[in-house]
Amino acid sequence: MTDTATTGTVSFGYEDVAPDEKTARVGGVFSSVAKNYDLMNDAMSGGMHRLWKDRFVRRVQPQEGQQILDMAGGTGDIAFRLAASGASVTVADINPAMLEVGMERAAKRGIDGLVWTEANAETLTFPDRFFDAYTIAFGIRNVTDIPKALREAHRVLRRGGRFFCLEFSTTTWPGFKEVYDGYSHKMVPKLGQLLAQDADSYRYLIESIRRFPDMPTFKGMIADAGFVRTKAEPILGGLVAIHSGWKI
């Protein structure tokens, strides 16, 4: 991950670009893949993302009456799971195409009561101390200014509220990293081209994983934003991780 403060650039896959350019280009990627969201995640995880999301929501422990913000959750994958508990869920995403897919999916499933809003994780319009929990799944690595987004997450949470993030990371299992790197770099773009006629977007998504901070570094970033009792729970040795922290 490139340090904006010292270079004026941020990472877009393996490229270093201006922050505004990254925001625009990430928007293009997700407008392109919105209709094939499940396909994208299946390609990158071998279908295991569904189990990881179930595990993630179990860690959140949503409860009836809670207010939960699901950031970068446009297609509803996490929100649908959260809402099953009776919690009030606001789904926020910077990309209207992703939100459109989510609303269509919710209508087909007969899921009512979700609030859908277009929002930038770095500049939320929600009031201070409004939510009981903040969730973001496979979205934080695409944010242009991650520390700013983490500070915003802290701001909108009530005291006692919790931050939860599900994201690809770096596995520490010997041998497995090399196997997954080979699969992801060589096969995922080919699958993207074959199944969605879009190799470039899938290539970016894989590259963005490689540029994302490792578990200790990202855990430190969450603490720097003001959260305490931060935790990183590795899955598959850290290929994916659930990060969490408390606001006190």
Rank of each mutant, 00 (worst) to 15 (best):
A153S: 15
E122Y: 07
L191K: 05
Y183T: 06
I248Q: 12
Y14R: 11
A97H: 13
I146L: 06
V26D: 04
Y204H: 07
D181I: 11
S208V: 13
F56L: 15
G160C: 00
E233Q: 13
K219Q: 15
S169H: 11
F12Y: 15
I222N: 08
G73R: 03
V29M: 12
D198I: 04
G73F: 03
I94D: 02
D112M: 14
L236M: 15
R81Y: 01
A83Y: 02
S88D: 10
D70T: 11
L205T: 01
R203W: 00
A133E: 00
G27L: 05
S169C: 14
A121W: 02
V143E: 06
P189A: 05
S85D: 04
A84F: 07
A149T: 03
L150E: 08
G182L: 13
L82I: 05
T9M: 00
R159W: 06
K247T: 11
G161A: 08
I235C: 02
D20L: 14
R25N: 00
G220W: 10
T172V: 10
L195M: 12
A223N: 03
V26K: 07
A43Y: 06
A107P: 02
P147I: 15
D93I: 01
V89L: 01
E152W: 08
S32G: 13
G226I: 01
I209M: 15
A121H: 02
Q61Y: 04
A72I: 10
Y202L: 10
N120K: 02
F30W: 10
D3K: 10
W246G: 04
F163N: 07
N95D: 14
E104A: 12
R129Y: 05
T172Q: 15
A106S: 13
D145G: 01
N120C: 08
D128L: 06
G86K: 01
V17S: 07
D93A: 05
I146M: 08
I222R: 10
T117W: 09
P96N: 10
A232R: 01
A137G: 14
H185S: 06
L69I: 00
D145L: 09
E21K: 10
F138T: 00
I206E: 04
I242H: 07
F130Q: 02
N120M: 05
Y134Q: 09
F80Y: 04
V91R: 09
P96E: 11
E100P: 00
Y180P: 02
I140Y: 13
P147D: 14
T2L: 12
V156G: 02
D42M: 07
A121R: 01
P216Y: 04
G8R: 07
G8H: 00
A24R: 13
I235K: 06
E207M: 03
E178C: 05
D145E: 12
F168Q: 00
Y204A: 06
I222Q: 11
Y14S: 09
G226L: 06
T2S: 14
F30A: 11
K108D: 13
R55F: 14
G245D: 00
G73S: 07
E15W: 09
D3T: 09
G76F: 03
T135V: 03
D112I: 13
V101R: 06
G226F: 04
A119E: 15
G220A: 14
G47S: 03
T230P: 08
G175M: 12
N41T: 10
E100K: 15
